[in-house]
Nucleic acid binder design. Structure first.
Lengths: 247, 247
DNA sequence: TTATCGAAGTGGGTTAACCCACTATCCCAT
DNA sequence: ATGGGATAGTGGGTTAACCCACTTCGATAA
Protein backbone atom coordinates (compact mmCIF):
# COMPACT_ATOMS: atom_id res chain seq x y z
CA UNK A 1 0.00 0.00 0.00
CA UNK A 2 2.99 2.33 0.42
CA UNK A 3 1.63 4.37 3.32
CA UNK A 4 3.72 5.98 5.98
CA UNK A 5 3.11 7.63 9.29
CA UNK A 6 4.90 10.30 11.27
CA UNK A 7 4.28 10.09 14.98
CA UNK A 8 6.36 13.16 15.84
CA UNK A 9 3.76 15.67 14.74
CA UNK A 10 0.57 17.16 16.08
CA UNK A 11 -1.38 15.82 13.10
CA UNK A 12 -3.31 12.77 14.32
CA UNK A 13 -2.05 9.48 12.95
CA UNK A 14 -5.54 8.33 11.88
CA UNK A 15 -5.87 11.53 9.85
CA UNK A 16 -2.52 11.05 8.11
CA UNK A 17 -3.58 7.57 7.03
CA UNK A 18 -7.03 8.69 5.95
CA UNK A 19 -5.66 11.51 3.80
CA UNK A 20 -3.07 9.31 2.12
CA UNK A 21 -5.66 6.74 1.15
CA UNK A 22 -8.12 9.42 0.04
CA UNK A 23 -5.52 10.97 -2.23
CA UNK A 24 -4.68 7.59 -3.76
CA UNK A 25 -8.35 7.12 -4.54
CA UNK A 26 -8.80 10.61 -5.98
CA UNK A 27 -5.70 10.20 -8.14
CA UNK A 28 -7.02 6.83 -9.20
CA UNK A 29 -4.00 4.97 -7.92
CA UNK A 30 -6.60 2.91 -6.09
CA UNK A 31 -9.43 1.89 -8.36
CA UNK A 32 -13.05 1.00 -7.52
CA UNK A 33 -13.45 -2.60 -6.46
CA UNK A 34 -9.87 -2.92 -5.19
CA UNK A 35 -9.58 -4.61 -1.82
CA UNK A 36 -7.47 -2.83 0.77
CA UNK A 37 -5.16 -4.77 3.08
CA UNK A 38 -6.94 -6.12 6.14
CA UNK A 39 -7.09 -4.08 9.30
CA UNK A 40 -4.56 -6.37 10.94
CA UNK A 41 -2.22 -6.12 7.97
CA UNK A 42 -2.38 -2.31 7.98
CA UNK A 43 -1.83 -2.38 11.73
CA UNK A 44 1.38 -4.36 11.27
CA UNK A 45 2.59 -2.47 8.20
CA UNK A 46 2.13 0.96 9.73
CA UNK A 47 3.01 0.14 13.31
CA UNK A 48 -0.16 1.64 14.73
CA UNK A 49 -3.02 0.08 16.63
CA UNK A 50 -6.06 -1.41 14.98
CA UNK A 51 -8.32 1.17 16.58
CA UNK A 52 -6.41 3.91 14.77
CA UNK A 53 -6.67 2.10 11.45
CA UNK A 54 -10.40 1.73 11.91
CA UNK A 55 -10.81 5.38 12.77
CA UNK A 56 -9.05 6.31 9.54
CA UNK A 57 -11.24 4.02 7.43
CA UNK A 58 -14.44 5.20 9.11
CA UNK A 59 -13.98 8.71 7.77
CA UNK A 60 -13.47 7.37 4.25
CA UNK A 61 -16.67 5.37 4.56
CA UNK A 62 -18.66 8.42 5.68
CA UNK A 63 -17.54 10.26 2.58
CA UNK A 64 -18.38 7.26 0.44
CA UNK A 65 -14.82 6.45 -0.66
CA UNK A 66 -14.80 2.97 0.85
CA UNK A 67 -17.09 0.18 1.92
CA UNK A 68 -16.50 -2.57 4.46
CA UNK A 69 -18.08 -5.92 5.02
CA UNK A 70 -17.46 -8.13 8.01
CA UNK A 71 -15.92 -11.40 6.94
CA UNK A 72 -14.83 -9.97 3.60
CA UNK A 73 -12.73 -6.86 3.85
CA UNK A 74 -12.40 -3.21 2.91
CA UNK A 75 -13.02 -2.12 -0.68
CA UNK A 76 -12.75 1.02 -2.76
CA UNK A 77 -16.27 2.18 -3.62
CA UNK A 78 -17.51 2.72 -7.15
CA UNK A 79 -17.92 6.24 -8.46
CA UNK A 80 -21.01 7.93 -7.11
CA UNK A 81 -24.12 8.36 -9.22
CA UNK A 82 -25.06 11.95 -9.85
CA UNK A 83 -28.72 12.49 -9.25
CA UNK A 84 -30.73 15.63 -9.46
CA UNK A 85 -31.95 16.75 -6.08
CA UNK A 86 -35.03 18.10 -7.87
CA UNK A 87 -36.32 15.37 -10.10
CA UNK A 88 -38.44 13.07 -8.01
CA UNK A 89 -39.92 10.78 -10.60
CA UNK A 90 -36.30 10.25 -11.40
CA UNK A 91 -35.91 7.21 -9.21
CA UNK A 92 -37.25 4.83 -11.82
CA UNK A 93 -36.28 6.80 -14.90
CA UNK A 94 -32.89 7.97 -13.61
CA UNK A 95 -31.54 4.46 -13.58
CA UNK A 96 -33.06 3.67 -16.94
CA UNK A 97 -31.16 6.67 -18.27
CA UNK A 98 -27.93 5.29 -16.83
CA UNK A 99 -28.47 1.94 -18.47
CA UNK A 100 -28.81 0.31 -15.08
CA UNK A 101 -31.65 -1.99 -14.30
CA UNK A 102 -33.50 -0.90 -11.19
CA UNK A 103 -35.15 -3.53 -9.07
CA UNK A 104 -37.85 -2.49 -6.63
CA UNK A 105 -38.46 -4.75 -3.66
CA UNK A 106 -41.49 -4.21 -1.45
CA UNK A 107 -40.37 -4.42 2.18
CA UNK A 108 -43.66 -3.71 3.90
CA UNK A 109 -47.08 -2.30 3.28
CA UNK A 110 -49.49 -1.22 5.98
CA UNK A 111 -52.46 1.02 6.52
CA UNK A 112 -52.12 3.31 9.50
CA UNK A 113 -53.82 6.19 11.25
CA UNK A 114 -51.78 9.27 10.44
CA UNK A 115 -49.96 11.18 13.15
CA UNK A 116 -50.03 14.94 13.55
CA UNK A 117 -47.16 15.46 11.15
CA UNK A 118 -48.77 13.51 8.33
CA UNK A 119 -52.12 15.21 8.88
CA UNK A 120 -50.42 18.54 8.50
CA UNK A 121 -48.40 17.78 5.39
CA UNK A 122 -51.07 15.73 3.61
CA UNK A 123 -53.76 18.23 4.66
CA UNK A 124 -56.01 15.54 6.10
CA UNK A 125 -59.06 16.18 8.24
CA UNK A 126 -57.98 17.04 11.76
CA UNK A 127 -61.20 15.69 13.25
CA UNK A 128 -61.48 12.38 11.52
CA UNK A 129 -58.28 11.86 9.54
CA UNK A 130 -58.38 9.38 6.69
CA UNK A 131 -56.13 6.37 6.82
CA UNK A 132 -52.75 6.39 5.14
CA UNK A 133 -51.03 3.64 3.18
CA UNK A 134 -47.38 3.27 4.11
CA UNK A 135 -45.09 1.56 1.63
CA UNK A 136 -41.50 0.77 2.36
CA UNK A 137 -39.61 -0.12 -0.79
CA UNK A 138 -35.98 -0.94 -1.46
CA UNK A 139 -34.39 0.10 -4.73
CA UNK A 140 -31.56 -2.12 -5.91
CA UNK A 141 -29.15 -2.43 -8.83
CA UNK A 142 -27.44 -5.77 -9.44
CA UNK A 143 -28.79 -6.98 -6.12
CA UNK A 144 -27.03 -4.14 -4.30
CA UNK A 145 -29.36 -1.81 -2.35
CA UNK A 146 -29.14 1.86 -3.28
CA UNK A 147 -32.20 3.65 -1.88
CA UNK A 148 -34.71 2.93 0.87
CA UNK A 149 -37.93 4.72 0.06
CA UNK A 150 -40.89 5.15 2.38
CA UNK A 151 -44.08 6.50 0.87
CA UNK A 152 -47.18 7.78 2.69
CA UNK A 153 -50.32 7.83 0.55
CA UNK A 154 -53.72 9.08 1.78
CA UNK A 155 -56.36 6.47 1.02
CA UNK A 156 -58.99 9.11 0.42
CA UNK A 157 -57.10 9.97 -2.74
CA UNK A 158 -56.04 6.45 -3.66
CA UNK A 159 -58.88 4.11 -2.67
CA UNK A 160 -58.12 0.44 -3.27
CA UNK A 161 -54.41 1.23 -3.53
CA UNK A 162 -53.40 -1.21 -0.75
CA UNK A 163 -54.03 -4.16 -3.08
CA UNK A 164 -51.74 -2.92 -5.81
CA UNK A 165 -48.48 -4.30 -7.08
CA UNK A 166 -45.66 -2.01 -5.97
CA UNK A 167 -42.67 -3.36 -7.78
CA UNK A 168 -42.85 -0.87 -10.62
CA UNK A 169 -43.09 2.89 -10.88
CA UNK A 170 -45.53 4.30 -8.37
CA UNK A 171 -46.07 7.48 -10.37
CA UNK A 172 -46.98 5.49 -13.45
CA UNK A 173 -49.55 3.62 -11.38
CA UNK A 174 -51.00 6.85 -9.97
CA UNK A 175 -51.41 8.17 -13.47
CA UNK A 176 -52.86 5.04 -15.04
CA UNK A 177 -55.22 4.00 -12.28
CA UNK A 178 -56.21 7.29 -10.68
CA UNK A 179 -55.44 9.89 -13.29
CA UNK A 180 -53.26 11.73 -10.80
CA UNK A 181 -49.97 13.27 -11.85
CA UNK A 182 -47.32 14.55 -9.45
CA UNK A 183 -46.34 18.07 -10.41
CA UNK A 184 -44.05 19.59 -7.83
CA UNK A 185 -42.64 18.90 -4.38
CA UNK A 186 -41.03 20.55 -1.41
CA UNK A 187 -39.23 19.26 1.62
CA UNK A 188 -35.86 18.93 3.26
CA UNK A 189 -32.54 17.30 2.63
CA UNK A 190 -30.28 16.12 5.40
CA UNK A 191 -27.66 13.77 6.83
CA UNK A 192 -28.52 10.96 9.22
CA UNK A 193 -26.88 7.91 10.74
CA UNK A 194 -28.28 4.55 9.72
CA UNK A 195 -30.56 2.82 12.20
CA UNK A 196 -30.51 -0.93 12.66
CA UNK A 197 -33.29 -1.35 10.11
CA UNK A 198 -31.66 0.98 7.57
CA UNK A 199 -28.38 -0.87 7.95
CA UNK A 200 -29.90 -4.27 7.41
CA UNK A 201 -31.91 -3.22 4.37
CA UNK A 202 -29.28 -1.03 2.73
CA UNK A 203 -26.52 -3.49 3.54
CA UNK A 204 -24.30 -0.97 5.29
CA UNK A 205 -22.70 -0.95 8.70
CA UNK A 206 -24.75 0.29 11.64
CA UNK A 207 -24.25 4.00 12.18
CA UNK A 208 -23.12 4.85 8.67
CA UNK A 209 -23.84 8.37 7.40
CA UNK A 210 -26.73 8.42 4.92
CA UNK A 211 -28.46 11.16 2.96
CA UNK A 212 -32.18 11.71 3.41
CA UNK A 213 -34.61 13.57 1.24
CA UNK A 214 -38.08 14.01 2.68
CA UNK A 215 -40.62 15.82 0.53
CA UNK A 216 -44.33 16.36 0.14
CA UNK A 217 -45.48 15.85 -3.45
CA UNK A 218 -48.33 17.87 -4.96
CA UNK A 219 -50.44 17.86 -8.08
CA UNK A 220 -50.59 20.87 -10.37
CA UNK A 221 -53.57 22.09 -8.33
CA UNK A 222 -51.52 21.98 -5.13
CA UNK A 223 -53.24 18.90 -3.75
CA UNK A 224 -50.77 16.97 -1.57
CA UNK A 225 -50.74 13.36 -2.70
CA UNK A 226 -47.69 11.83 -1.07
CA UNK A 227 -45.00 12.16 1.55
CA UNK A 228 -41.83 10.60 0.23
CA UNK A 229 -38.85 9.82 2.43
CA UNK A 230 -35.86 8.54 0.50
CA UNK A 231 -32.71 7.35 2.24
CA UNK A 232 -29.70 7.27 -0.06
CA UNK A 233 -26.46 5.39 0.50
CA UNK A 234 -23.79 8.07 0.62
CA UNK A 235 -21.30 5.86 -1.18
CA UNK A 236 -23.65 5.57 -4.13
CA UNK A 237 -24.93 9.09 -4.69
CA UNK A 238 -23.95 12.67 -5.09
CA UNK A 239 -26.61 15.25 -5.71
CA UNK A 240 -26.95 17.73 -8.50
CA UNK A 241 -28.26 21.19 -7.77
CA UNK A 242 -29.81 23.36 -10.46
CA UNK A 243 -31.00 26.70 -9.16
CA UNK A 244 -32.72 29.66 -10.60
CA UNK A 245 -32.04 32.70 -8.51
CA UNK A 246 -35.08 34.45 -7.17
CA UNK A 247 -35.94 37.91 -8.38
CA UNK B 1 -29.26 11.81 32.69
CA UNK B 2 -31.35 8.71 33.34
CA UNK B 3 -29.76 6.47 30.74
CA UNK B 4 -29.43 2.73 30.99
CA UNK B 5 -27.62 0.02 29.15
CA UNK B 6 -28.29 -3.65 28.54
CA UNK B 7 -25.15 -5.64 27.87
CA UNK B 8 -26.98 -8.93 27.34
CA UNK B 9 -28.16 -8.13 23.85
CA UNK B 10 -26.73 -8.05 20.36
CA UNK B 11 -27.49 -4.34 20.06
CA UNK B 12 -24.20 -2.50 20.50
CA UNK B 13 -23.92 -0.54 23.71
CA UNK B 14 -22.76 2.65 21.97
CA UNK B 15 -25.88 2.48 19.82
CA UNK B 16 -28.21 2.07 22.79
CA UNK B 17 -26.72 5.16 24.38
CA UNK B 18 -26.81 7.15 21.17
CA UNK B 19 -30.48 6.35 20.53
CA UNK B 20 -31.54 7.22 24.08
CA UNK B 21 -29.88 10.59 23.92
CA UNK B 22 -31.22 11.24 20.43
CA UNK B 23 -34.76 10.53 21.57
CA UNK B 24 -34.39 12.83 24.55
CA UNK B 25 -33.32 15.59 22.19
CA UNK B 26 -36.12 14.95 19.70
CA UNK B 27 -38.69 14.90 22.48
CA UNK B 28 -37.17 18.09 23.81
CA UNK B 29 -36.34 16.59 27.17
CA UNK B 30 -32.87 17.86 26.42
CA UNK B 31 -32.93 21.43 25.18
CA UNK B 32 -30.44 23.29 22.99
CA UNK B 33 -27.54 24.71 24.96
CA UNK B 34 -27.79 22.11 27.72
CA UNK B 35 -24.47 20.62 28.75
CA UNK B 36 -24.31 16.84 28.90
CA UNK B 37 -22.40 15.09 31.68
CA UNK B 38 -18.70 14.77 30.95
CA UNK B 39 -17.39 11.68 29.20
CA UNK B 40 -15.89 10.44 32.45
CA UNK B 41 -19.15 10.99 34.31
CA UNK B 42 -21.14 9.07 31.69
CA UNK B 43 -18.49 6.35 31.80
CA UNK B 44 -18.99 5.95 35.53
CA UNK B 45 -22.78 6.32 35.48
CA UNK B 46 -23.33 3.76 32.74
CA UNK B 47 -20.53 1.37 33.61
CA UNK B 48 -19.07 1.38 30.12
CA UNK B 49 -15.70 2.49 28.84
CA UNK B 50 -14.98 6.00 27.69
CA UNK B 51 -14.29 4.82 24.16
CA UNK B 52 -17.86 3.54 23.95
CA UNK B 53 -19.29 6.82 25.26
CA UNK B 54 -17.30 8.73 22.68
CA UNK B 55 -18.46 6.47 19.87
CA UNK B 56 -22.07 7.15 20.88
CA UNK B 57 -21.57 10.91 20.95
CA UNK B 58 -19.72 10.93 17.63
CA UNK B 59 -22.81 9.73 15.78
CA UNK B 60 -24.91 12.46 17.38
CA UNK B 61 -22.37 15.04 16.28
CA UNK B 62 -22.41 13.79 12.68
CA UNK B 63 -26.17 14.25 12.59
CA UNK B 64 -25.84 17.68 14.13
CA UNK B 65 -27.58 16.91 17.43
CA UNK B 66 -24.59 17.73 19.61
CA UNK B 67 -21.39 19.73 19.61
CA UNK B 68 -18.23 19.18 21.63
CA UNK B 69 -15.39 21.43 22.59
CA UNK B 70 -12.17 20.29 24.23
CA UNK B 71 -11.80 21.83 27.66
CA UNK B 72 -15.49 22.73 27.81
CA UNK B 73 -17.80 19.78 27.32
CA UNK B 74 -20.61 18.31 25.24
CA UNK B 75 -23.64 20.43 24.40
CA UNK B 76 -27.01 20.00 22.74
CA UNK B 77 -26.94 21.88 19.43
CA UNK B 78 -29.39 24.59 18.49
CA UNK B 79 -32.12 23.85 15.99
CA UNK B 80 -30.83 23.77 12.44
CA UNK B 81 -31.45 26.63 10.05
CA UNK B 82 -33.53 25.65 7.05
CA UNK B 83 -31.96 26.97 3.90
CA UNK B 84 -33.06 26.55 0.34
CA UNK B 85 -30.68 24.41 -1.62
CA UNK B 86 -31.58 26.55 -4.63
CA UNK B 87 -31.28 30.13 -3.58
CA UNK B 88 -27.64 31.11 -3.82
CA UNK B 89 -27.80 34.78 -3.19
CA UNK B 90 -29.48 33.67 -0.02
CA UNK B 91 -26.32 33.58 2.01
CA UNK B 92 -26.46 37.27 2.81
CA UNK B 93 -30.21 37.75 2.56
CA UNK B 94 -31.18 34.44 4.18
CA UNK B 95 -29.77 35.51 7.50
CA UNK B 96 -31.27 38.96 7.21
CA UNK B 97 -34.63 37.24 6.79
CA UNK B 98 -34.03 35.24 9.94
CA UNK B 99 -33.25 38.34 11.93
CA UNK B 100 -29.69 37.15 12.41
CA UNK B 101 -26.78 39.40 11.74
CA UNK B 102 -24.32 37.81 9.34
CA UNK B 103 -20.67 38.69 9.63
CA UNK B 104 -18.38 38.02 6.69
CA UNK B 105 -14.70 37.60 7.43
CA UNK B 106 -12.19 37.51 4.59
CA UNK B 107 -9.77 34.65 5.21
CA UNK B 108 -7.65 34.93 2.09
CA UNK B 109 -7.58 36.48 -1.33
CA UNK B 110 -5.25 35.45 -4.10
CA UNK B 111 -4.93 35.54 -7.83
CA UNK B 112 -4.06 32.19 -9.38
CA UNK B 113 -3.69 30.47 -12.70
CA UNK B 114 -6.73 28.27 -13.12
CA UNK B 115 -6.43 24.50 -13.28
CA UNK B 116 -8.17 22.32 -15.83
CA UNK B 117 -11.33 22.05 -13.78
CA UNK B 118 -11.75 25.81 -13.44
CA UNK B 119 -11.01 26.39 -17.12
CA UNK B 120 -13.74 23.95 -17.98
CA UNK B 121 -16.42 25.29 -15.68
CA UNK B 122 -15.64 28.97 -16.15
CA UNK B 123 -15.19 28.44 -19.91
CA UNK B 124 -11.80 30.14 -19.97
CA UNK B 125 -9.38 30.07 -22.86
CA UNK B 126 -7.65 26.73 -23.00
CA UNK B 127 -4.56 28.22 -24.67
CA UNK B 128 -3.96 31.24 -22.49
CA UNK B 129 -6.38 31.04 -19.59
CA UNK B 130 -7.13 34.26 -17.78
CA UNK B 131 -6.25 34.54 -14.12
CA UNK B 132 -8.78 33.81 -11.44
CA UNK B 133 -9.40 35.57 -8.15
CA UNK B 134 -9.88 33.16 -5.27
CA UNK B 135 -11.67 34.45 -2.20
CA UNK B 136 -12.06 32.42 0.93
CA UNK B 137 -14.63 33.93 3.23
CA UNK B 138 -16.06 32.82 6.55
CA UNK B 139 -19.69 33.55 7.38
CA UNK B 140 -20.45 33.94 11.07
CA UNK B 141 -23.37 34.70 13.34
CA UNK B 142 -22.69 35.91 16.88
CA UNK B 143 -19.01 35.12 16.36
CA UNK B 144 -19.87 31.48 15.62
CA UNK B 145 -18.77 30.24 12.17
CA UNK B 146 -21.56 28.82 9.99
CA UNK B 147 -20.32 28.62 6.40
CA UNK B 148 -16.90 28.56 4.74
CA UNK B 149 -17.26 29.92 1.24
CA UNK B 150 -14.64 29.78 -1.48
CA UNK B 151 -15.30 31.81 -4.60
CA UNK B 152 -13.47 31.62 -7.94
CA UNK B 153 -13.92 34.70 -10.10
CA UNK B 154 -12.39 35.10 -13.59
CA UNK B 155 -10.52 38.39 -13.77
CA UNK B 156 -11.44 38.86 -17.43
CA UNK B 157 -14.98 39.42 -16.26
CA UNK B 158 -14.17 41.30 -13.07
CA UNK B 159 -11.06 43.44 -13.76
CA UNK B 160 -9.83 45.29 -10.73
CA UNK B 161 -11.85 43.06 -8.45
CA UNK B 162 -8.82 41.98 -6.35
CA UNK B 163 -8.74 45.38 -4.66
CA UNK B 164 -12.32 45.28 -3.49
CA UNK B 165 -13.75 45.05 -0.02
CA UNK B 166 -15.20 41.60 0.46
CA UNK B 167 -16.97 41.88 3.77
CA UNK B 168 -20.39 42.50 2.28
CA UNK B 169 -22.53 40.84 -0.35
CA UNK B 170 -20.49 39.79 -3.34
CA UNK B 171 -23.51 39.74 -5.63
CA UNK B 172 -24.40 43.29 -4.70
CA UNK B 173 -20.86 44.32 -5.60
CA UNK B 174 -21.01 42.51 -8.94
CA UNK B 175 -24.19 44.33 -9.79
CA UNK B 176 -23.12 47.78 -8.64
CA UNK B 177 -19.59 47.80 -10.00
CA UNK B 178 -19.81 45.54 -13.05
CA UNK B 179 -23.48 45.48 -13.93
CA UNK B 180 -23.42 41.70 -13.75
CA UNK B 181 -26.30 39.81 -12.19
CA UNK B 182 -26.19 36.12 -11.29
CA UNK B 183 -29.19 34.38 -12.76
CA UNK B 184 -28.96 30.62 -12.31
CA UNK B 185 -26.52 27.96 -11.15
CA UNK B 186 -25.80 24.28 -11.31
CA UNK B 187 -23.50 21.97 -9.44
CA UNK B 188 -23.36 19.26 -6.84
CA UNK B 189 -24.22 18.72 -3.22
CA UNK B 190 -22.38 16.27 -1.03
CA UNK B 191 -21.03 15.15 2.33
CA UNK B 192 -17.38 15.51 3.31
CA UNK B 193 -15.21 15.21 6.39
CA UNK B 194 -13.62 18.40 7.65
CA UNK B 195 -9.96 18.92 6.84
CA UNK B 196 -7.59 20.55 9.29
CA UNK B 197 -8.23 23.95 7.73
CA UNK B 198 -12.00 23.52 7.65
CA UNK B 199 -11.95 22.46 11.28
CA UNK B 200 -9.94 25.42 12.44
CA UNK B 201 -12.00 27.96 10.56
CA UNK B 202 -15.43 26.47 11.23
CA UNK B 203 -14.54 25.73 14.84
CA UNK B 204 -15.45 22.05 14.67
CA UNK B 205 -13.53 18.92 15.52
CA UNK B 206 -11.21 17.45 12.90
CA UNK B 207 -13.02 14.88 10.77
CA UNK B 208 -16.54 16.14 11.40
CA UNK B 209 -19.13 15.53 8.68
CA UNK B 210 -19.89 18.70 6.72
CA UNK B 211 -22.19 19.50 3.81
CA UNK B 212 -20.73 20.93 0.62
CA UNK B 213 -22.45 22.69 -2.22
CA UNK B 214 -20.28 23.43 -5.24
CA UNK B 215 -21.93 25.27 -8.11
CA UNK B 216 -21.12 27.27 -11.18
CA UNK B 217 -23.09 30.51 -11.34
CA UNK B 218 -24.25 31.99 -14.66
CA UNK B 219 -25.79 35.19 -15.92
CA UNK B 220 -29.10 35.20 -17.78
CA UNK B 221 -27.09 34.85 -20.99
CA UNK B 222 -25.39 31.68 -19.73
CA UNK B 223 -22.07 33.34 -19.13
CA UNK B 224 -20.30 31.57 -16.23
CA UNK B 225 -19.19 34.18 -13.73
CA UNK B 226 -18.30 32.24 -10.61
CA UNK B 227 -17.53 28.89 -9.07
CA UNK B 228 -18.86 28.85 -5.54
CA UNK B 229 -17.91 26.19 -3.03
CA UNK B 230 -19.80 26.51 0.24
CA UNK B 231 -19.04 24.26 3.20
CA UNK B 232 -21.87 24.19 5.73
CA UNK B 233 -21.68 23.03 9.33
CA UNK B 234 -24.05 20.11 9.55
CA UNK B 235 -25.15 21.09 13.05
CA UNK B 236 -26.31 24.46 11.76
CA UNK B 237 -28.16 23.69 8.54
CA UNK B 238 -30.77 21.57 6.96
CA UNK B 239 -31.61 22.05 3.34
CA UNK B 240 -34.92 22.76 1.73
CA UNK B 241 -35.77 21.16 -1.59
CA UNK B 242 -38.37 22.64 -3.91
CA UNK B 243 -38.78 20.70 -7.10
CA UNK B 244 -40.85 21.00 -10.19
CA UNK B 245 -41.16 17.67 -11.91
CA UNK B 246 -39.97 17.58 -15.47
CA UNK B 247 -42.40 17.04 -18.25
C1' DT C 1 -5.13 46.11 41.59
C1' DT C 2 -3.62 43.51 38.02
C1' DA C 3 -1.02 40.29 35.39
C1' DT C 4 0.74 35.73 35.35
C1' DC C 5 1.19 31.10 36.20
C1' DG C 6 -0.21 26.70 37.29
C1' DA C 7 -3.49 23.17 38.65
C1' DA C 8 -7.62 20.83 37.63
C1' DG C 9 -10.91 19.39 34.48
C1' DT C 10 -12.48 18.91 29.78
C1' DG C 11 -12.33 16.38 25.30
C1' DG C 12 -8.70 14.21 21.67
C1' DG C 13 -5.72 10.48 20.49
C1' DT C 14 -3.62 6.07 20.97
C1' DT C 15 -2.50 1.45 22.51
C1' DA C 16 -2.86 -3.74 23.41
C1' DA C 17 -5.85 -7.03 24.40
C1' DC C 18 -9.95 -9.54 24.23
C1' DC C 19 -14.32 -11.65 22.51
C1' DC C 20 -18.00 -11.82 18.97
C1' DA C 21 -20.51 -12.16 14.32
C1' DC C 22 -20.13 -12.84 9.63
C1' DT C 23 -17.95 -15.09 5.36
C1' DA C 24 -15.51 -18.36 2.77
C1' DT C 25 -13.41 -22.58 2.32
C1' DC C 26 -12.23 -27.10 2.76
C1' DC C 27 -12.82 -31.52 4.29
C1' DC C 28 -15.43 -35.20 5.75
C1' DA C 29 -19.49 -38.06 6.10
C1' DT C 30 -23.22 -39.43 3.58
C1' DA D 1 -21.37 -36.21 -6.10
C1' DT D 2 -23.21 -33.69 -2.43
C1' DG D 3 -24.58 -31.69 1.96
C1' DG D 4 -22.95 -30.23 6.42
C1' DG D 5 -19.89 -28.85 9.77
C1' DA D 6 -15.45 -27.35 11.50
C1' DT D 7 -12.10 -23.79 10.92
C1' DA D 8 -9.60 -19.78 9.82
C1' DG D 9 -9.86 -15.11 8.62
C1' DT D 10 -12.45 -10.87 8.18
C1' DG D 11 -14.50 -6.71 10.36
C1' DG D 12 -17.41 -5.13 14.84
C1' DG D 13 -17.41 -4.02 19.60
C1' DT D 14 -15.46 -3.17 24.03
C1' DT D 15 -12.20 -2.37 27.75
C1' DA D 16 -8.59 -0.03 30.84
C1' DA D 17 -4.91 2.68 30.67
C1' DC D 18 -2.11 6.34 29.25
C1' DC D 19 -0.60 10.94 27.51
C1' DC D 20 -1.79 15.34 25.26
C1' DA D 21 -4.11 19.99 24.06
C1' DC D 22 -7.39 23.26 25.29
C1' DT D 23 -10.19 25.89 28.78
C1' DT D 24 -11.13 27.73 33.12
C1' DC D 25 -10.23 29.67 37.25
C1' DG D 26 -8.05 30.61 41.34
C1' DA D 27 -3.70 31.49 43.75
C1' DT D 28 0.25 34.04 43.61
C1' DA D 29 3.42 37.62 42.58
C1' DA D 30 4.37 42.21 40.96
Amino acid sequence: MNLNVNKNTIVPVFYQIQEQIRKKIEREKLKPGTQLPTERELEAQLGVSRVTIRKAIRGLITEGYCTKRAGKGIFIADKKIKTDVHSLEGTTSLFAGLGKELETRLISRKVINPDARMIKYLQLSAVEPEEVLVLKRLRLVDDEPYILETTYLPLCIFPGMPNGDFNGSLYQMMDEQYGIKPHHASGIFNVMMSTEEDSKLLNVQLNTALLVKEVTVYTATNLPIEINKSVFRSDKFKFIVNSALKE
